[in-house]
Amino acid sequence: MDTRKKSKLSVALLCLLIGFPQISESIFTPILPTLSNALNVTDSNIQLTVSIYFIGFALGVLIWGILSDKYGRKPIMLLGLLIYLLGNIFLLCSNDFHSIGPIIGAQLETHFHYMSVFLFLIALATILLILNFVKLPETNLLKVDYSTKDIIAVVLRLLKDRFVLLNAFAIAVFNAILFNFYSEAPFNFINNLKLSTGAYNTGILIALGTITGAYVVNSLAVKTSSFDVIRLGISIAVAFSIFSIFTFANANIFMIYISIFGIFLGINIALPVILKTSLYAYEDVIGIASGIFGFMYYCMIGVLTFIMSVIHTGNILVFPIYTLALAIGLSVLILINKKF
């Protein structure tokens, strides 16, 4: 295999690995109402699976990052995929248990049994495990073994940095809105608006918001300050959050779709800039800092999605009101701190 073919394969494998967590995070959300009925648990309890997922994700970001620096990225990647595969096999055998995911999940649940979602994830994890074992190169040739003292020093440095804490909260809010929508949408669109599981494919709206947001960011990058781009994104998210309350209240599906697109357009204008600027002062310890930073905002996401499960009542207005509260709270904090 020549260098060009190897490069294409590496890029394709990298794209699969990047998209894998997003698919995993969202693929089972369309079947939440079905799971709630099948397992005879409340809607709020079934939504807790989303929060638990992010707590586990937070621990994974922290632990796997440090271990990959010490032992290499390929063996840790393979171990993580193996644990993920075993977890899905356990779910499939148990009787008690970010845009393309909901589409796949909805279609699987519509045309097959809801457990086919876990079969799909098992197959995907198996394919990735084999591809990574055979084709993934080791990119961490210089192993680093961080001492406990090194890790504690970076943790304290991050916790004292108000800019980093604000960015972590902003990232958490944006992701919480996304995954609160994923967890609430099946109940709103299926139970309240009486759409079938396969008919409410809002993942397309989120994808369009992501693509359009990326285009806007690229267009503004040269001539607009980071703070102004972030402020624009949050303003759009707040405006469409207000609009969404009226569209959900009137049960106008077309206008609901527009409001959802607008919310995620705003998020995808602001979020990339925040991610880009968050750790610019931590290049000297970027490996540890990235892991700890990810742990911080994934824990926050877990808390914010937990609140969504607690306040879930089945009322169609709960999601848009909570989204507006998060967006307004974040906009106030961003406006107070203009260090971008």
Rank of each mutant, 00 (worst) to 15 (best):
S36P: 00
V332F: 14
L119D: 10
L82T: 15
F227K: 15
C93I: 13
S183L: 00
L119P: 01
G60K: 05
K223L: 08
A281C: 06
L9N: 13
F120W: 06
Q47E: 07
H312T: 09
Y53E: 01
S7H: 14
I245V: 10
A12F: 11
H111G: 03
L14T: 15
L128G: 03
N192F: 01
L86T: 13
G65I: 03
N140F: 13
L330M: 11
A172G: 15
G266W: 02
L335M: 15
L67M: 13
A168N: 11
I27N: 06
K74C: 14
V229L: 12
I177R: 01
I236F: 06
D43E: 12
I66T: 04
F90E: 12
F306N: 05
K338E: 15
G287V: 07
A168F: 15
A123E: 04
I206N: 00
I263P: 03
L81S: 11
S94W: 12
L124V: 13
N180S: 15
K276M: 09
I311R: 02
I316K: 06
I301Y: 03
G287T: 10
F120T: 03
F20E: 08
F179E: 08
P21D: 09
V303R: 07
L220N: 01
T313G: 06
F57P: 00
T110M: 15
L166I: 08
I242F: 15
I311K: 05
I258Q: 05
Y114A: 03
V222W: 06
I31L: 06
G291N: 11
Y200I: 00
G101L: 04
F174S: 13
I230C: 01
F264W: 02
F293T: 08
L81M: 13
G233V: 05
I245D: 01
D150G: 00
V303A: 14
L35S: 07
I89A: 14
Y257R: 07
F179W: 12
G105N: 09
L67P: 02
R162N: 10
N140C: 09
T34I: 09
G213R: 03
T3C: 09
N132V: 09
N45E: 01
A281P: 00
V303C: 13
K6W: 05
M300N: 12
L324D: 00
L13G: 07
G60T: 05
T323C: 06
K149V: 10
L67G: 01
K149E: 08
D43H: 09
D2R: 13
W64E: 04
F57Q: 02
I253F: 12
A325F: 12
V238A: 04
G213A: 10
G19Q: 05
N201H: 06
G291C: 11
N37K: 13
A172L: 15
L129C: 00
I253Y: 14
F306W: 13
R157I: 06
S235W: 11
G294K: 03
F293C: 12
L317V: 08
F340Q: 04
I336T: 09
G87F: 08
V50T: 14
E109A: 15
H98G: 11
T247R: 02
L220H: 03
R73S: 10
I242E: 05
I288L: 14
I104P: 03
G203C: 00
L129A: 00
T224V: 15
L335I: 14
G72Q: 05
N88M: 11
V222L: 10
L333N: 06
I23V: 13
S331R: 04
